[in-house]
Nucleic acid binder design. Structure first.
Length: 634
RNA sequence: GCCGGCGUAGCUCAAUGGUAGAGCACCUGUUUUGUAAACAGGCGGUUGCGGGUUCGAAUCCCAUCGCCGGCUCCA
């Protein structure tokens, strides 16, 4: 444990000490340090309130002042049981004790009257806790399993000194100002209207410019890399998703199907209530899941294809993924090995029924557009194609100056049944991902259980302003959907072969990416992305005519410019431009008008002096064309 | 979905059971301005929605919708 973790871990023990002083009946679970602080989970009838937090924190300060030494005590399993019973903490601690392997030492840590099953380590005296603060109360399931009891978790943070604590809290406050939900409102980038629906993004004109620019940017890269553009509809028949495996496997995270009127009439005509419709779908999908589970891994889908029988309801689903549609395009005609790789790209909008409590601004939504593509290639081509996809992700991130990300290779969880396909193919796909990741030149972690249901993936993960991680770009290797859809190409040997699929989305979703991007730039977008690139402000409205000439010239070059026609003093107009985070403000007075000039003020660099209107236009055009990042120094 | 907190004007907030208010934004007028806020006036609210308690509810209670922080989930 690092010294800081040790400090925070000790703070969590002191938190538990204080809680037991105030609420002796509280049952303890666990209290570890975290990246940013610590927490402790309690089971208690009384619901903690904000006022309780103040009281608890005050008692914690007392405990710190009592300068209690922390003692480590190693005990036998029998002694441990006795301690737990003596303290009436059987409810969770017995289970925690049982988790400790037989060959490991069992230890307790004691400070004052408090004693907790704990591997350690701890600070030597509670007086080391000079700077801590309780932050929030949250529900948390015991062992992170929603089938278990929900405990009350108290979060806090601690630092070696009061200054460091104050700096951390101030930095957190600063971070909130960059929150994309706040900036989205301030800069009028997007709205979410409760009448339209939770998690459904309405892109306003300003936000749409950013999204469109990003789309144009990557579109150019795709043309260079030999992708073909396709378009597909937002829905597909239930049958399609039964074949792909989405329907039985992930039905709970999809919008309810749109049932064909005829099917619906048949069911309702029999006197069924709406609930009966859902019950029937449940039964059908359960049955399909069983069938598909027992059939995964076979090399031909024809015999395995699940056909609807008379009991089935026919209808459509909002697409949760684009792959089935793209697969159907690939399958629509025969392919020679000479055609491969086939790369089909689409900004495809998908819909997923995320739990209401998980929705979050742009970063977790119910309808989003993936910058998606599916590559169909030979097994020999997989490595090169995956590397090409990773290259694309790196181009995106470096163009935007996003360097603070981590790479995760998501592998299957060997104990889970949520995956489709046979083991041999999974092994090949996982190996392909691993090898490709090694060529990245950045560290990556392998994480079991993070794979897609059809294959392993390489994800680019970025933190938002409050430290939550979000998966953005992703590259996924898939040996399984080609089997499920019985895809083939004709090889050099004139025999049919199974292609391998690669799913990839460098941005991930436009919504989530823009959310993270807004926070990355704090709303100060580079000129090429800024909804408004230039604001013209005049000293006096007598100069507005000249300003309008300059404005027309800027617009003529395709630049996004406006003229501030308010009857305000210059300072007020500049302030407004600054608050609107416009990259360039052109100040126009008599001198400028007479010389066909503009006085340039850069948001990043301040006053840059006077230049000819023509020169500014050329300079900004070049800056936009090169997709330059805002430079602090001229 | 679960636990907890919160919903007052476009935005930020005030009013704690007794006439819903301020600043900014917006509109109008005056001002004609040199690098982050000129002045004056005006517009703007069934206090998220629906019930209830009360002589009287933004305020108390119930329900519902939404938002925020966690948990769970995340193709």
């Amino acid at each position: 444990m690092t010294p800081l973790e040790e400090l925070r871990h000790s703070a969590s023990h002191v938190l538990a000490t204080a809680v037991l002083r105030l609420f002796p009946e509280a049952k303890l679970d666990i209290g570890p340090p975290t990246d940013t602080g610590f927490y402790y989970d309690f089971d208690l009838e009384h619901k903690f309130t904000a006022e309780d937090l103040v009281r608890i924190e005050a008692v914690m300060k007392q405990v710190a002042d009592e300068n209690q030494p922390f003692y480590r005590k190693e005990v036998s399993r029998e002694e441990a049981l006795a301690i737990i019973h003596a303290r009436g903490q059987e409810r969770y601690k017995l289970g925690r004790l049982a988790d400790i392997p037989a060959d490991e030492k069992i230890s307790f840590y004691q400070n004052g009257e408090f004693m907790d099953l704990c591997a350690g380590t701890h600070v030597r005296y509670s007086s080391k806790l000079k700077a801590f603060k309780l932050l929030s109360i949250a529900g948390a399931y015991h062992r992170g399993d929603e089938k278990n009891a929900q405990l009350q978790r108290i979060y806090g943070t601690a630092f070696p000194t009061k200054d460091e604590l104050a700096a951390y809290l101030a930095q957190q406050e600063q971070a909130k100002l960059r929150d994309h939900r706040k900036l989205g409102k301030d800069l009028k980038l997007f709205v979410i209207d409760e009448d339209v629906g939770q998690g459904l993004i309405l892109w306003t004109p300003n936000g749409s410019i950013i999204r469109q620019e990003l789309q144009d940017f990557i579109g150019g890269e795709l043309r260079k890399q030999g992708y073909s553009q396709v378009f597909t509809p937002h829905i597909g028949k239930l049958e399609l998703y039964k074949t792909s495996g989405h329907f039985p496997y992930y039905k709970e995270s999809q919008f309810s199907p749109v049932i064909e009127n005829e099917s619906l009439a048949r069911v309702l005509g029999e006197g069924c209530a709406c609930a009966e419709v859902y019950a029937r779908l449940e039964a059908v999908s359960g049955q399909l899941a069983t069938q598909l589970n027992t059939r995964t891994g076979r090399e031909t889908i024809t015999a395995d294809r699940v056909r609807p029988d008379d009991q089935l309801l026919n209808g459509f689903m909002l697409k949760p993924m684009n792959c089935p549609h793209h697969i159907k395009i690939f399958a629509s005609q025969p392919h020679s090995y000479r055609d491969l790789p086939v790369r089909l790209a689409e900004f495809g909008t998908v819909y997923r029924w995320e739990q209401s409590g998980e929705l979050n601004g742009l970063t977790r939504v119910r309808g989003f557009t993936q910058d998606d593509a599916h590559l169909f290639c030979t097994e020999e081509q997989v490595g090169a194609e995956v590397r090409g996809c990773l290259e694309l992700v790196k181009i995106v991130l470096s163009t935007l100056g996003m360097a603070d990300y981590r790479v995760r290779v998501g592998l299957r969880d060997p104990d889970s049944t949520k995956y489709t396909g046979d083991t041999a193919n999974w092994d090949k796909a996982e190996q392909a991902c691993r090898e490709a990741a090694q060529t990245l030149g950045v560290p990556f972690t392998e994480e079991p259980g993070e794979a897609a249901f059809y294959g392993p993936k390489i994800d680019f993960v970025i933190k938002d302003v409050i430290g939550r991680e979000w998966q953005l770009g992703t590259v996924q290797v898939d040996y399984n959907l080609p089997v499920r859809f019985d895809l083939s190409y004709i090889g050099a040997d004139n025999q049919p072969h199974r292609p391998v699929m690669i799913h990839r989305a460098p941005f991930g979703s436009m919504e989530r990416f823009c959310g993270v991007l807004i926070e990355h730039f704090g709303g100060d977008f580079p000129a090429w992305l800024a909804p408004e690139q230039v604001r013209l402000v005049t000293i006096s409205d007598r100069l507005d005519d000249y300003a309008r000439t300059v404005l027309a010239q800027l617009k003529g070059e395709g630049l996004r410019a406006t003229l501030d026609e308010h009857s305000d003093k210059l300072g007020a107009k500049i302030r407004r431009a600054e608050l609107d985070k416009v990259p360039y403000t052109l100040v126009i007075g008599q001198k400028e008008a007479e010389a066909a000039c503009v006085s340039v003020r850069s948001r990043a660099r301040g006053d840059e002096g006077v230049m000819s209107a023509d020169a500014f236009r050329a300079k900004l055009k070049a800056e936009v064309a090169s997709r330059a990042l805002p430079a602090k120094q001229a």
